[in-house]
């Protein structure tokens, strides 16, 4: 089949040559240029093949696999970091809880201490107040007793004075008795 087309092409080329001389024709069928084109094509293909198989393809393949490796590594590292972050968060939470408990303990202690001091102070103040109140009571009682006494005297004097003013002879004993009687009542 291939040889057939070749023969046909040959015939066509001879015709093409005839046509080319008259100014028209298909340059593709000008067989005199074939050896030249085939030679340069083979040179080109060999050069491209060598460049690709020696330099370009291994390099690009290397880049691609390196990138795949980098991505895998980065993913692993990210996973690692994530775990670490979770650990750190847990540690932080634990420390926070501890600190909170400590703070509560200190606060409770302080409160208890203050309470003790407060109780003491209140007791002392109560005692003092009680003592002062008792003293005052006593003073008031004394004053009141003094006052009562004075009232009795004043009342007797006044009564005697009133009796004498009314023109009667005051009987001291009777006045005293009456006043005492009234004051009891």
């Amino acid at each position: 089949m291939a040889t057939e087309t070749h023969d046909a092409g040959q015939a066509a080329a001879e015709m093409a040559h005839g046509a080319a001389e008259s100014g028209a024709g298909m340059p593709q069928l000008d067989f005199s240029t074939y050896p030249n084109q085939v030679f340069w094509l083979v040179v080109t293909l060999v050069v491209i093949y060598l460049i690709l198989s020696r330099v370009a393809l291994p390099r690009i393949g290397g880049i691609l696999s390196e990138r795949a490796g980098t991505i895998t590594n980065d993913l692993a590292a990210a996973e690692d970091l994530k775990v670490k972050a979770a650990e750190a968060e847990e540690a932080y939470n634990q420390a926070l809880a501890e600190a909170r408990a400590e703070a509560q303990r200190i606060a409770a202690e302080a409160r208890a201490e203050i309470q003790v001091g407060l109780d003491d102070a209140i007791a002392r103040a109560d005692a003092e107040i009680a003592a002062k109140a008792a003293e005052s009571e006593k003073a008031i009682a004394e004053i009141r007793a003094g006052a009562l006494e004075s009232i009795e005297i004043v009342a007797k004097d006044t009564a005697a004075e009133i009796v004498s003013a009314l023109g009667f002879k005051s009987d001291e004993a009777a006045v005293t008795g009456a006043v005492t009687e009234r004051m009891k009542g």
Binding site: T33, N36, Q37, T44, I48, A56, R59
Partner: peptide, 29 residues
């Protein structure tokens, strides 16, 4: 004259395609 080794415009443009491939695949990477 067109001997099998004569540099032609076909050879020039084949060479330029080599250059294009080198620029893209070798220098690009």
């Amino acid at each position: 004259t067109l001997a099998w080794y004569t540099p032609t415009n076909a050879a020039l443009w084949m060479g330029l395609s080599i250059v294009a491939i080198i620029v893209l695949l070798v220098m690009g990477s």
